[in-house]
Design a protein around this nucleic acid. Structure first.
Length: 426
RNA sequence: GUGGUUGUAGCUCAGUGGUAGAGCGUCAGUUUGUGGUACUGAAUGUCGCGGGUUCAAUUCCCGUCAGCCACCCCA
């Protein structure tokens, strides 16, 4: 048992029942995306490392990205996130794509991190973006989609919240307070975890972390506690547009402490949080990236989007006891094999059912001489196969098949084409 | 990268310095053409791996690997 080669650290195996859950989540994402008119696309899972450089610090790239060298000695990354791929695809064809571009995908990403709750080294992300319009209504649309996703998962505004800010608020604030640009990044890092620090220790902790004057420190406390976004004309318009998304706006609120780590975000940034705090980290995040395609060498195509991962949301749904009971996919019909002699009949019937588009499984396990059906019924039970067809000596003699509904336990003998009709009518 | 914690039957876990247990599941039977329930019975382990201490280690110690959790980080 212990000789089995282990799975790669931080990866997950999706056995059929696990896959069914993943597929359930994917279907929710797809449903919401398509409701807003977004088209599904896909891109490669590997990219040249160059796609990610300049968008992030070299240290993070070196430490957190899985890289490999191809046979021509080019450095390739297993994509650590999906946005640069979209930006690249848009930049390549920006002239011919009809705008606004509304696209979504669901794909794997990799990060070399220490696995823990809601975080692994291999994960899935729902990447959804609107590119083209540099308008607050686009931001409101993405926020509404985020809210609608929660609604589809039966997560309420009492349980989750989408916190939104505008990066220019912080930049303007720093300009006003004469905070040097070199201090801004450390300050962002600090403010990112400010909720973990008790209110009365705040001023001391800020000073400890960054060299700032008392006035500046007090101003920072004032900044993070400010609930008024009117200084951002952009956010004001975003919230105004959001007013028209009746239910969905209840999920969204202003929070000046939201920054996001990605350097490519401009203006709007947001993070979804669990209000109970059990998750201790953002469920997902997103924002506006107006210059990304340009940075990649293309023409400027402004965009806004988000990337919800599968692991945090599944962890959250588990905590709230809102995971559905999903079953692995199964055939609709199990054709039993009464004895070795009757195998040919069962094969023939299976084949005919499939020709009529009925998902059919032929029993290929052990056939006992006495009571040959018992084991086969049990098998159908365990695999949640709703119908069984029995072809025993009696049926062969009469040229009929027995069709049984496993749930109601009703069974009846039919001619094969009648049985097919019966199955198709349900 | 740092720290905590766990690793025993297919699964969930109990246990002990002197040759290993429960529940669930599995298999067989009650039921020779009918499943989920019930009853009866049975099988199953290099006690994660390597080393050390000991007359003796699954148990104690060290290391290692893996899982989980937290920190760090999170573009």
């Amino acid at each position: 048992m212990n000789k089995i080669v282990l799975p790669v650290k931080g990866t997950r195996d999706f056995y059929p029942v696990d896959f069914a859950l993943r597929d359930w989540l994917y279907q929710k994402m797809k449903l919401v995306s398509e409701r807003y008119g977004y088209q599904e696309y896909d891109g490669p899972e590997i990219e040249y490392v160059d796609l990610y450089t300049n968008k992030t610090s070299e240290e993070i790239l070196r430490e957190q990205v899985f890289t490999l060298t191809d046979k021509d000695n080019r450095l390739i990354a297993l994509r650590p996130e999906l946005t640069p791929t979209v930006a690249r695809m848009v930049a390549q064809k920006s002239q011919q794509l009809t705008k606004p571009i509304r696209w979504f995908m669901f794909g794997r990403g990799w990060r070399y991190e220490q696995p823990q709750k809601g975080r692994g080294r291999e994960f899935f992300q729902w990447e959804i973006n609107i590119l083209g319009p540099e308008s607050p209504e686009a931001d409101a649309e993405i926020l509404s989609i985020a809210a609608e996703y929660f609604k589809e998962l039966h997560l309420t505004p009492d349980e989750v919240v989408i916190r939104v800010s505008d990066r220019s608020l912080f930049e303007n604030f720093c300009d006003q307070q004469n905070i040097e640009s070199t201090k801004r990044l450390p300050l962002i890092r600090f403010l990112d975890r400010i909720d973990k620090i008790p209110r009365d220790l705040l001023a001391d902790e800020i000073k400890k972390a960054i060299d700032l004057s008392t006035e500046q420190t007090n101003a920072i406390i004032g900044f993070v506690e400010n609930k008024d976004y009117s200084q951002s004309a952009w956010l004001t318009k975003v919230f105004s547009a959001l007013e028209n998304y009746s239910d969905n706006k209840k999920y969204v609120e202003f929070d000046p402490k939201i920054f996001r780590g990605f350097d490519y975000y401009t203006r709007t940034v947001f993070e979804a949080w669990d209000k109970t705090g059990g998750l201790k980290r953002a469920i997902f995040g997103g924002g506006r990236f107006d210059n990304l395609t340009e940075t990649l060498g293309g023409e400027r195509v402004p965009g806004v989007g988000m990337a919800p991962g599968d692991m945090p949301i599944l962890e959250l749904l588990k905590q709230f006891n809102k995971l559905p009971e999903v079953k692995a996919n199964a055939a609709r019909v199990l054709v039993t094999v009464f004895s070795k002699n009757l195998m040919q009949s069962s094969l023939r019937v299976s084949s005919q059912l499939r020709s009529n588009n009925i998902n059919t499984e032929l029993y290929l396990g052990e056939i006992k001489e006495k009571n040959p059906l018992e084991k086969q019924f049990k098998y159908a039970d365990q695999k949640n196969i709703p119908y069984i067809i029995v072809i025993g000596p009696e049926e062969v003699e009469k040229k009929l098949v027995t069709l049984k509904n496993m749930q109601t336990r009703e069974q009846k003998q039919f001619k094969l084409d009648e049985a097919i009709n019966e199955l198709q009518s349900k």
